[in-house]
Design a protein around this nucleic acid. Structure first.
Ligand code: MN
Ligand code: MN
Ligand code: MN
Ligand code: MN
Lengths: 229, 229
DNA sequence: GCTATAATTTAGTCTAGACTAAATTATAAG
DNA sequence: CTTATAATTTAGTCTAGACTAAATTATAGC
């Protein structure tokens, strides 16, 4: 069992780097210097610099081979999951208690995730009823940092004719989220795939609950994750 | 009307310096370099350095004359009040929504006050019902940064025989707050002064609501603020 | 008016985390 | 196998905000 590092021992920057590496790794693409730089809006040189420090820490938070990218150690992964937990709990709080819309929460949580204490995290989880998913359907690691299962099928890969349920929206872009919200494409809703174009990734779907048809482009078809009903 | 500076344009450090200067000035003693240093747990040299920057900003946030201490400009005062408002709203939230005790809130609010957005501040105030006082009885500036009146009489100056109501506790020390809490000396409660020693500042008082007598030393007699009933 | 003392300021460093520009490396294409 | 290109790393700076040690200043007491 790796000793878990308390968040207050990590700077805000360090927490954001670890989280970015974790999320890039989850997304499958691997955590290249440039992708970390893009995600955090810093220069590639800054990433190299930070990544070298993370690798030289005791205990090391990443393993790093020059020019071949970076991976989280177990300590690094736990630290990242801790920040992910806080981020998503805060998003849930913002929507359910403070009445934020789901496109407003990310920015706010991005700062607050670094400012809360372990006590705050614990009390917040209790207040919210130990939620397993955030407003975007993103899974919230529990207090032991175990992630609940979450759906893995992007809408654009669902078979035509199939009726599925939206369970997650993997995109932070506020404009995209507002648009999905207008359409009514939120976690929990049912969708029937009418047609699916493999070439240009456009979709025609029916929102079963609203008896409404909409056309979705590539960005939306990739962002909306679904599960079979 | 001075333009008010949005908090996100001020660093965490800057906000804390302005707040410290504001609170020292309120307490009456004047904001000397060394008292700011004490309050923020930094060296006097660091204070001089920061104070010079605050004076040279456009607009200036303080006026500064070497060796004679520092005063807030109107812009500086408004920025300080904004941070005070956030701090006290957060303390109220922590006690009333997350179940913190009043000795735990200060530390947490000291970080969160810098991390919330104007929207969070506004929604929080609505959620809490636009409270005018925080858990310690400290007045909360309203959205226009106007402070409600708060009581000004320290318990040690109340006349023997007088029955008064506790309205505020001016002290951040967790041990002192826990002790007052045990005694039952919280805002709202009635106290009758039995005796008051001007020399060693000890007090003997009766907690009218609990029909209990206690003896208070100088620190407590100065911290507990009361109003005539 | 002088001087001892305490408070304050100056001068010089340090660290974290960013940046740009230049150098290096991996690799795809010929 | 060579080379062009893109990605990455290195080298050198910068800023904010802290520090210590040394110098300076205000002022209280003689
Ligand atoms: Mn963040
Ligand atoms: Mn989310
Ligand atoms: Mn603070
Ligand atoms: Mn308070």
């Amino acid at each position: 069992m790796a000793a878990t590092i308390e968040p207050q021992l990590l700077t805000e920057s360090t927490q954001d780097y670890l989280k970015a590496i974790y999320e890039l790794t989850q997304a499958g693409g691997g955590a290249a210097t440039s992708s970390i730089a893009d995600r955090l809006s810093v220069s590639p040189a800054s990433v190299t610099n930070m990544v070298q420090k993370l690798a030289e820490r005791q205990p090391p938070l990443v393993t790093y081979r020059k020019h071949y990218g970076v991976e989280l150690t177990n300590e690094g992964r736990l630290a990242a999951l801790r920040t992910v937990r806080r981020h998503r709990l805060i998003e849930q709080f913002l929507t359910h208690v403070l009445g934020y819309s789901w496109d407003e929460v990310h920015q706010e949580a991005e700062r607050l995730e670094h400012a809360i204490s372990p006590l705050f995290e614990e009390r917040l989880a209790i207040l919210l009823g130990e939620p397993r998913f955030d407003p975007h359907g993103d899974p919230i690691p529990d207090a032991n940092l175990t992630l609940p299962d979450s759906c893995a099928l992007p809408l654009y890969r669902a078979a035509p004719g199939q009726v599925v349920r939206v369970c997650r929206v993997r995109n932070d872009n506020p404009a995209l989220l507002r648009y999905l919200d207008e359409l009514g494409l939120r976690p929990g809703l049912r969708v029937r795939v009418i047609s699916s174009q493999p070439v240009d990734y456009t979709l025609q779907v029916e929102l079963v609950d609203y008896d409404k048809q909409v056309v979705l482009g590539q960005a939306l078809g990739e962002a909306v994750m679904v599960e079979a009903i």
